[in-house]
Design a protein around this nucleic acid. Structure first.
Length: 585
RNA sequence: CGGGGCGUGGCGCAGUCUGGCAGCGCGCAUCGUUUGGGACGAUGAGGUCGCGAGUUCAAAUCUCGCCGCCCCGACCA
């Protein structure tokens, strides 16, 4: 077998340029450091080139994910980025997705799309290739460029329009079989993230979109994240704030009193009304109005709570929810500031469960300057929906154990989703069961944002000087700083060759730069092990070794250097153990 | 899509209010001196001041229009 080993990479010829100063448009650490360290360069909003260093890192991340996918029997393939719209029309997404789906026409005037995910294509393949239950379960994955025309790209690789995603699709004969498959994926995901240096937080996520029954998200917990996660301070409960719940408020069981109209001139907000009447906010009823696209939804919630729009969306089945404008309220006969659910028809009324268990609330009278005392549901007004639509706040009781919940921020680096037969029904994707009858394929979908994962790793692994890559994903294993020419250069080249022969990848800084520049660049690039070869070390017949994440540096005898560095490297990788007990997902 | 900010050499910025030679630091090139935490000296290259109209004797600077990028929000992996 022919093995072609590339020559040792020298900094002098690396296709890169590190920057001394932060790029002016970068605010978060990963964005700043990846641009400064010549890992990425922007081309447009949310569109990046991956320079050689960045691409090497992405490929190492990919390889870890690939190994974990292969380990659970998922098979790699590659599906196209540009699709005819046909399948997307059959599932309805060609029409239902917004402008994030890039649509265009080919020369023959056919509708085409840039894939932002691959459910349609994967399931279509499964439908064509799988005929019998004997071929199930089956699963496939690929690493592919996705394009989503995001309304607002941000934070370097944190949220881009073009990105690389590992997406996997599973096909099972039954929901029970999918449950087992799903557990394998969750386990593989946790392993993959741990090997990349991230302890993920697995939380419940919104499964309502696209008919899913169950969904989890995997988060890298850092303040740079965009998602708010609700976690229990005592038990293992965790959920995206979009779907997080708390214990229902205790019913107050107070005797309903007769309704009474009071004058409250100029008091239009909860705080103002409560203050004026000398009542706490939780004795009031807040009215919030949303426009669903074809009608107004009147949301009644206890005055001290906020509406969770994701929950409301689910309750109403209205994906395009927004707050209603005052003119829309007036047109519907409502009085902004004094709106009341009492005596209202023509609008959909959604009542939060907090209102159901609280008596004698203060609500608007639907007349300017007046409120009603002692409003009671359902005595005084009707609801189209009674549901939990309140946003969970810090300190609320955990729905599982009752301890206080807390809010944290995270970067969503992966998600898993049970679709069931949602797409299979639309695409007619079925198999013949043991009994000989056609059954819809039971589908699951699983994503890991590879480029975002790289950003998350940097967010969690950096200091003031630069990146500190986990050894598993660093672009090179060893950063060899060569301080000098002649015999120093010879020693450095010999060491580099020996390290590579020992299976390590080496970046040699052979540039004619001052030691300070080289050390600072080494810190910036973040390769886990730094070796220095200089006149000083050559004279001592030694090599200096420093780990990026530690301050101390030490010398070892030149003869022992390779073995020592190899051992340090192996220890660093071994520390990224994927085998700790899994969090209960 | 709403709000805010910014577009001047490769990078970071000043100059714009008050129109009058396009500047500074870093980087880059050549030579010399340096060489363990962002060296020093000398010389030098490099800019349609985002684009297009307009006002003016004269526009980076004033006016109008457009484009791009970043941040906050809305939204989303």
């Amino acid at each position: 077998m022919v093995v072609v080993r590339p020559p040792v990479q020298r900094m002098s010829s690396l296709f890169a340029r590190t920057l001394r100063e932060d790029p002016s448009d970068a605010t978060i650490a990963s964005h700043r450091l990846m641009v400064r360290g010549a890992y990425i360069r922007p081309l447009g909003a949310g569109i990046f080139s991956y320079l050689p260093l960045g691409w090497r890192t992405l490929r190492r991340i990919e390889q870890i994910v690939r190994e974990e996918m292969d380990a659970i029997g998922c098979q790699e393939l590659l599906m196209p980025v540009v699709h005819p719209s046909t399948l997307w029309e059959r599932t309805g997404r060609f029409g239902s997705l917004g402008p994030e789906l890039v649509r265009f026409k080919d020369r023959a005037d056919r509708n085409m799309v840039l894939a932002l995910t691959h459910e349609e294509i994967a399931l279509d393949l499964a439908a064509r290739l799988v005929g019998s239950y004997r071929q199930l379960p089956a699963s496939v994955y690929h690493f592919q460029t996705k394009f989503r025309d995001e309304p607002r790209p941000r934070g370097g690789l944190l949220r881009t329009r073009e990105f690389t995603m590992k997406d996997a699709y599973t096909f099972d004969p039954s929901p029970e079989s999918l449950d087992a498959t799903y557990r394998h994926f969750v386990r593989a995901y946790v392993r993959a993230f741990r090997r990349c240096g991230i302890e993920p937080l697995v939380v419940e996520s919104d499964a309502s979109a696209m008919g899913g029954s169950d969904a989890d998200e995997f988060h890298a917990m850092t303040s740079a994240g965009e998602d708010t996660i609700v976690v229990c301070t005592s038990c293992d409960y965790g959920a995206n704030q979009e779907v997080a719940t708390t214990r229902p408020p205790d019913p107050d069981n107070a005797e309903p009193l007769p309704m009474e109209k009071v004058e409250t001139p100029g008091h239009e907000t909860i705080t103002a009304v409560a203050g004026f009447l000398g009542l706490p906010a939780h004795r009031t009823l807040k009215a919030v109005f949303y426009w669903t696209g074809d009608q107004i939804a009147f949301v009644a919630i206890r005055g001290d709570l906020e509406v969770n729009e994701a929950k409301l969306r689910g309750t109403l089945g209205a994906p395009d929810l927004r707050l209603a404008a005052d003119q829309e309220l007036t047109a519907a006969g409502l009085v902004p500031g004094y709106a009341s659910p009492v005596g209202i028809d023509q609008v959909t009324v959604v009542v939060d469960r907090s209102v159901e268990c609280t008596s004698n609330l203060v609500a608007g009278a639907n007349m300017p300057g007046f409120h009603l005392l002692n409003v009671n549901f359902p005595r005084d007004f009707a609801a189209d929906h009674v549901a939990d639509i309140a946003a969970v706040a810090a300190g609320d009781p955990c729905p599982k154990c009752g301890a206080a919940l807390e809010l944290r921020t995270g970067i969503e680096i992966g998600n898993t989703f049970k679709f069931g037969a949602y797409y299979s029904d639309k695409l007619d994707a079925s198999f013949l069961s043991e009994g000989g009858s056609p059954q819809p394929i039971v589908m699951g979908s699983y994503g890991i944002g590879i480029t975002r994962l790289a950003a998350a790793i940097v967010e969690l692994h950096h200091d003031d000087h630069g990146i500190i890559w986990p050894a598993s994903v660093a672009p090179y294993d060893v950063h060899l700083v060569q301080l000098g020419k002649a015999e120093v250069q010879e020693a450095a080249e010999r060491l580099a060759d020996d390290l590579e022969a020992a299976g390590l990848t080496v970046l040699v800084d052979d540039r004619d730069e001052s030691a300070g520049v080289k050390f600072n660049d080494a810190d910036l690039l973040g390769i886990p092990i730094r070796c220095t070869v200089s006149r000083r070390t050559v004279r001592a017949d030694a090599v200096e070794i420093k780990l990026r994440h530690q301050d101390e540096r030490g010398q070892v005898a030149a003869a022992d250097a390779v073995a020592r560095i190899r051992a340090e490297h192996d220890a660093l990788v071994a520390a990224l153990s994927p085998d700790a007990p899994l969090p209960d997902a």
